[in-house]
Design a protein around this nucleic acid. Sequence first.
DNA 1: CGACGGTGAGAACGCTCGTTCTCACCCGTC
DNA 2: GACGGGTGAGAACGAGCGTTCTCACCGTCG
Lengths: 200, 200
Amino acid sequence: MPVATATTASMQAQLLDAVDEVFYARGFQAASMGELRDAAGLPLRRIYQLFGSKDELIVAFLRRRHDRMLAAIRARVSDAGSPADHVLAVFTHIDYWIHEPSFRGCPWANAFSELGPTNAAIAAEVDHHERELRALVTEVVADAGFSAHVADVIYLLMAGAITTAALQHSLSAAAEARHGAEIVLAAASRLNDDGGAPAP
Amino acid sequence: MPVATATTASMQAQLLDAVDEVFYARGFQAASMGELRDAAGLPLRRIYQLFGSKDELIVAFLRRRHDRMLAAIRARVSDAGSPADHVLAVFTHIDYWIHEPSFRGCPWANAFSELGPTNAAIAAEVDHHERELRALVTEVVADAGFSAHVADVIYLLMAGAITTAALQHSLSAAAEARHGAEIVLAAASRLNDDGGAPAP
DNA sequence: CGACGGTGAGAACGCTCGTTCTCACCCGTC
DNA sequence: GACGGGTGAGAACGAGCGTTCTCACCGTCG
């Protein structure tokens, strides 16, 4: 009985799978609706039934990536051992990500560059991602007993690793960022051990 | 006698000034040739005399930004005091940059996102920028007596500050990155002071 | 004085895009 | 067994783009 619904959902999933590959590999503007139709094997008419416009498709693409990215990071964090390892687990995910052959930078940075100035809905989705990702990093760092200032630096290292991996085709950026994070965490730990109060 | 040449150069400068504002504020693809013509006050015909195509204009824009950015960083570095201050001067420039009202992220990251997958000449210009900027950072860090690993972390902090300032509209990103850099430099200095040989 | 090469302003061209429309065709219902 | 709503495939549409062409006009040189 939920047959129609199920096929709608599966067609959305099929479409978003194709959309993901094409949007990410070619860029949002360079990927035409015709390419998306060919990649999804769905008629254009149905694409517009499932999502009202190309912009909505882009937002759905970003949201799906966001949900998966945060889930992946949470999984890595919960698999890690010591509190400091929880923080470093973030870089484990980045390292895994940038080694994927399809890696082509941060989808939200790409969306911001391409469409941020002209498309409010997409800019809002980028904002949403950035806020949630920053909140996650702040939470993980705080749970490990470090200050918000440490979280700021960890976040910058993560962001720098992603963009540097993309722009310089550097496969070592995540490892370098992890190294920087270790230094910062060690320095913060030493401050705590030396009797200094943790930053407020 | 170099009258004709001088006006050509001044028209190129006038055009590049207008191009800079429009490309950077609106994005490369969103900025149409008509907008550039209106902003520059130059007929379309002359624009195509000065630069053969929109792509060439984009490359010229990126190159001009590159030259100015590296010159600005070098100036800040040479104005700084102690060796460690030379490194931190890089963040002084980033801090100045992201506070400009027109700041809208890294032009090369934007170009890479918009056109990297489809335009080899622009991708090459982005590569050129990234290599030279990284070389400059590496040189400044090395001159201050720190290892290449430290330079990697400094570079990531700088890249992270620029992208975070853009995507999160954060005016404090450069200060946070500078804070991270101070921690890393202090840790590296302590290693040196403790008798460890500077990393090769 | 008259011909001419180059100019500015803008129309025109060819193309691509996102989106919608057409039109047979299929399938479940009376 | 006829029928109607929804389907797939693709043409069609209107807009916008980068680029080129038109054309009257001007200053310069022979």
